[in-house]
Amino acid sequence: MSLEVMMPTEHEVVVRPLGRPGDLGWVVMTHGELYHREFGWDAGFEALVAGIVADYARGGRARPQAAWIAEVDGVRAGSVFCMPGDDEGTARLRLLQVTAAARGLGLGSRLVRQCLDFARDSGYKAVTLWTNDVQKAARRVYEAHGFALTAAEPHHSFGHDLVGQTWRCTL
Rank of each mutant, 00 (worst) to 15 (best):
G19D: 03
G22S: 03
T9Y: 05
G19K: 03
F39C: 07
G19N: 07
V14G: 01
H31D: 00
V49H: 00
D23W: 05
V15I: 06
H31P: 06
P8W: 07
E46A: 14
V28T: 01
M29V: 14
G19H: 11
L24C: 13
V13R: 07
L48W: 10
G25T: 00
R20S: 15
A43G: 02
A43K: 08
E10T: 15
G32L: 03
F39D: 05
G32F: 01
D42L: 00
R16P: 06
P17F: 08
Y35G: 08
L48A: 11
F45H: 11
R16T: 05
T9W: 03
A47F: 06
V14A: 14
L34F: 07
L48T: 10
L48H: 11
P8V: 14
G40M: 04
E38Q: 15
G22K: 11
E46W: 03
M29C: 05
E10A: 15
P17A: 10
L24T: 03
R37N: 07
D42W: 01
G40T: 04
H11Q: 08
P17T: 05
M7E: 08
A47Y: 07
G32H: 00
M7P: 11
E33N: 12
E12P: 01
V15P: 04
L24N: 08
E10V: 15
L18Y: 10
H31N: 15
E33P: 03
L24I: 10
P17E: 12
H36V: 05
P21F: 12
H11W: 05
G22E: 06
L24K: 09
E46L: 02
G40W: 04
F45W: 09
E46N: 02
E46G: 12
P21S: 13
M29S: 05
T30N: 04
E10D: 08
P17Y: 00
G40H: 00
R16V: 09
H31S: 12
R20D: 08
G40F: 07
V15M: 05
A43W: 03
V27P: 02
E10R: 15
E33S: 14
D42Q: 00
Y35Q: 00
W41C: 02
R37L: 15
G40K: 00
H36L: 12
T30R: 03
L24E: 15
V14W: 06
E46K: 09
H11L: 07
L24Q: 13
P21E: 10
M29H: 08
Y35F: 09
M7D: 13
D23H: 01
L24H: 10
